[in-house]
Design a binder for these strands. Structure first.
Lengths: 138, 138
DNA sequence: CTGGGTGCAAATTCTTTGCAAAACC
DNA sequence: GGTTTTGCAAAGAATTTGCACCCAG
């Protein structure tokens, strides 16, 4: 899907800056910084102000389209959610199952950076007690 | 173990501020912010400057005694490592096994905050290709 | 045309740093 | 007594905000 379509689907106004930003995000497999997005836009000849990058990312986050996390260096990295697989969290009480974005994305990035591992794979099961069950037990 | 002993073991000079900071960390089960540590120290009548808190946490981090991560709100949370269990990461190539601090601590905190789950448990297997194997394959 | 989006500059927030004074061993 | 560590204030880095102007719908 191209960036214009992407924006339209989200009912966001299609502007030069947003197109440029989405394009950078789409072409990147891993989480990237605001700075990186900003500079990439410039290199593509499609400038967008830094604050526009921040604001666009905020909008995308509020629409749950982007994953935002910190890799321990004091700045955020962003990744389009459609590049992330899901996991299931199961309530140990009512056995309801819910999807969550794979939380290992940022962990894997950290392991890569700190320990030098590559091509990381994982297997993860998560259980917990969901909000409703917790309330009803009180 | 008490805070003075803790500091001595790490060959850190024992000062009022550090004692206060370590004590707060020791008494806390979950990851806490710098601000929280700072204020707790004051409430305990043992003031330590904000910069001292930062510096002490830096020292602890450099000695690998503390886990530092961001929960998506733009500030760091800290947790003593001895409260964290370990996982094993296995190299899928040479089958070497290495310990890593449970990466789920921060993820669980996030799931608690965002989804309302509590008493979260997990089961996690991680594999990857370690640095040496990656190099030797090139 | 009109409201949302942008650029610019200034403000905020969290964290780091320089330096003289104080505390530790 | 000689380092380390501290407190204070000032600097830095990342992000947010206010506002006038602009552009997509």
């Amino acid at each position: 899907m191209d960036s214009v379509l992407y924006l339209k689907k989200q009912k966001m106004k299609v502007t030069k800056g947003r197109i440029a930003i989405i394009e950078v995000l789409m072409h990147c497999k891993k989480a990237i910084t605001v700075e990186y997005i900003y500079e990439s836009c410039q290199q593509n000849g499609k400038s967008a102000d830094l604050s526009t990058v921040y604001r666009t990312l905020d909008t995308l986050e509020s629409k749950d389209l982007v994953n935002k996390f910190d890799l321990g260096d004091g700045k955020y990295n962003y990744l389009l959610k459609d590049k992330i697989h899901k996991h299931i969290i199961e309530c140990s009480c009512c056995h309801k199952k819910q999807e969550i974005d794979c939380p290992m994305v940022q962990i894997e990035e950290l392991i890569k950076n700190k320990m030098g591992y590559s091509t990381i794979q994982h297997e993860l099961k998560i259980k917990g007690i969901c909000e409703e069950c917790k309330k009803s037990k009180k």
